[in-house]
Amino acid sequence: MRRRAAPLAAAALVALAALVVIGLARPAVAPSRAEQEAQVAASLRCPDCAGLSVAESSSGSASAIRAEIGRLIDAGQAPEQVRQHFVARYGDWILLSPPVAVAWWLPVLVVLAAAMALITWLLRGRRRVPVAPTLDGTSESDARLEQVRREAEALDA
């Protein structure tokens, strides 16, 4: 019984692997033309409305842009190419979610820098060494005190 189970398990494994390979290799269902058009329209800002996408607005320019998106997709352009077509004319402003700018990382950098400063400050406090004694056996602070006293006397005199 045991001897027969091993080849069976191996065959099952091979079949499973084959299924996985077939599943991965099969291309995903391509979005339809209407889906592509809707996807691009939803990602572009309507130029003459406040905070609406081209897909949501009924304004003249929004419908003009929707028509242009349709024409460009019919001409064989991919959704990203269509988006770039409008970026080239309107700038990143036309995208409802503009590309991440360097400045967006500034707060993160500031927090990191502050954390590093705090850590170095805490570590330095722990490593503070006692005042080194001077050659004549008195500590440096004693010598300084003595000097201040002498200066005060000189002023009094």
């Binding site: 130029p47 320019s61 003009a64 842009i65 028509a67 004319r89 309107y90 700038g91």
Partner: peptide, 13 residues
Amino acid sequence: DGSRLALDFGVTG
């Protein structure tokens, strides 16, 4: 017609 030139120039309004 169809604002195609306006779109080419990037006119917002």
